[in-house]
Design a protein around this nucleic acid. Structure first.
Lengths: 347, 347
DNA sequence: CCTGGCACTCGGAAAGCGGGAGTGCTAAGA
DNA sequence: TCTTAGCACTCCCGCTTTCCGAGTGCCAGG
């Protein structure tokens, strides 16, 4: 990576902070005044020129000030940024928000709203892939002759359900029996294991399989199929906060961005990506690799249940965002969420 | 209501259709050419002048063409619009979309996406208030010493669940027993009845109540409380389609609109309002009574389960929308949805 | 009552015009 | 060698001006 003189670093830092604050290209004169530098605008211009050669800043046009490039932001967050820990009352106010909801599913959902409110940007939450969770219980409930409700419960209290239409009617007793067989066979295994086992069972010659169990397997398989093809476990909140930023007000960009929010595909990939490593991750502009996000930055942090990373929380905003604040908030939120999910309830 | 000469009606109809088509104020000359009228621009101007006095159209400024006012649109949809029934292949393609999903809950959710796709506007769906549905079964599942998962199933196959934290630990056997008592007491009653009965039971002196049943009641009550305060049963899709309309591209309006989409409160009220009467309803601009929707029109139709209105589907777009097309689509969709929900599965 | 004609109005695009902010360069001073 | 003041230059931005054309309202003749 590039190395800069201390002075140049100081200058770059001041410039980026200024630009983050008001979004206007910043020139040498204003920079000197604003940052209280002890050297003259001319000197600043020289240094700026160097920074521009290094690709850290650029001028939008000949006679405007400079704005940070993506490389500039990257350098800024990598080496210039002192992430100030959130002051205690901020942390406390965040903590308060975590006590309100007890249901883990709801809690997780609410976090995206929480993030968007305190950062005034868009908040996202990637909820755990259920396939990894432990299987607890399966229930078959007869709704009518042709419709059976399958309810699948995981050990962490998540519930999936699905109405299926079996090929022949079953009596409640049969259904009960099927569920029992199923539950005793798979109790405590992970959903992924259950799934693999099911696939194997279905491929095996099943002539000698009891009809009822076979149905149970088929039903459960349908549940997994439904899981598989989507209901994408991703929540986005506060999208409309992004209207406030003039650099995003180009209608076409906005449309792309909102399409990405609803399509969710790209966001999912991005958040999954950030699940592999621990701690806060930052994607600046094109770094995310998705066109729709190219004028945005994304700050993410994975959260855990009992030491195991299961999902990601994050914030999406313009590249010009208060990284220090956002980073702390995302970090603390991920920690708090991990805590809230790991040990039952506080009281 | 105002009455117009046949010629004026024809003119107004042509004008509005033209304006709907391209969104430009339409002048006398273009109107004559476009609509193939057999009288001259001057005559058209005279008639337009009359229409303007009646408040059906207006000029944005002295020398632009005319655009419809809200009254104009209203008159248009009330008396000028011949809702052409959808041609059969369109209906068929809609029907196809209803076969894919079988789970009623999922089906209902998917309809908003369907509507937004075929109209290229925003689709909304108000899902049934679950309180009216019939109670089928309650289950208590022990997740840990301090956490119990409550699962409540209605007769139409909807599942609600919630994790609660009882004051003292219960054994699986106790939970099972509690569920049994509860289920035999309330099987088949409507949720509303169950709820009322619960409240009464809780108020009654409960000293002599078995501790376990009391807990069951409390748990179930918590489930209802969760139901009560929200999880607003409303789906919106295709919001980003609205970016395409220049008349909505004012950032401030857009922000308001999207805030309304996420707050949902106003939309809920509006859709509830349209549940009271049968058939398609149309709210043009300020008619909806909500500021955020003042440059939009909303077309809604209630849907039923077994003859009973339970929810509403609808479309939100600019006032300048193809009412005939949208009305048919919303109408057919509501009917198809009613059909799909009323009798099990087709095959 | 319709229609062609005509003067008029007004918005919007293009063009012109400072002013100002900011730059790069140069030359002098530390 | 580095800093700084000075200066010419550039180019955006906001302002006005101009011009064009679409559209109107009105009038007078069919």
């Amino acid at each position: 990576m590039v190395s800069l003189t201390p002075r140049a670093e100081r200058l770059l830092k001041a410039l980026i902070e200024q630009y983050i604050a008001d979004g206007l290209p910043v020139g040498s004169r204003t920079l000197v005044k604003q940052a209280g530098l002890e050297f003259s605008p001319a000197t600043v211009r020289n240094i700026m020129s160097d920074l521009e050669e290094l690709g850290l800043i650029r001028s939008p046009h000949t006679s405007a000030g400079r704005v940070p490039t993506e490389r500039g932001y990257r350098f800024f967050v990598n080496t210039l940024l002192a992430v100030k820990p959130l002051n205690t009352e901020d942390v406390a106010s965040l903590e308060d928000r975590f006590l309100a909801d007890q249901d883990p599913q709801q809690l997780i959902e609410s976090v995206s709203g929480l993030l968007s409110q305190v950062t005034r940007l868009a908040g996202v939450v990637r909820v755990p892939r259920r396939a990894g969770a432990g299987f607890l219980q399966l229930d078959f409930l007869r709704l009518s002759a042709s419709r059976v409700l399958v309810i699948l419960v995981t050990q962490d209290g998540q519930v999936m359900n699905r109405v299926i239409h079996p090929k022949r009617p079953y009596s409640p007793a049969e259904l009960q029996q099927a569920a029992n067989v199923f539950n005793s066979a798979y109790a405590g295994r992970s959903l992924e294991e259950v799934r693999r086992s099911l696939v194997a069972a279905l491929q095996r010659d099943s002539e000698d399989m009891q009809n009822i169990l076979r149905s149970a397997v088929e039903m459960a398989h349908q549940v997994f199929a439904g899981e598989e093809r989507g209901e994408s476990p991703l929540y986005v909140s506060g999208e409309s906060n992004l209207f406030a930023f003039p650099e995003l007000s180009d209608t076409e960009k906005l449309r792309r961005l909102f399409d990405a929010f609803t399509a969710k595909q790209d966001l999912l990939h991005l958040l999954d990506q950030s699940m592999v490593s621990q701690g806060v991750q930052i994607f600046i502009g094109a770094e995310s690799g998705y066109e729709a996000l190219e004028s945005c930055s994304v700050v993410t942090a994975p959260y855990e249940v009992d030491g195991q990373i299961v999902g990601t929380v994050g914030v999406i905003g313009p590249k010009r965002m208060s990284y220090d604040r956002v980073i702390s908030i995302v970090d603390v939120t991920a920690r708090l969420l991990s805590g809230a999910l790991s040990h039952g309830q506080p009281s």
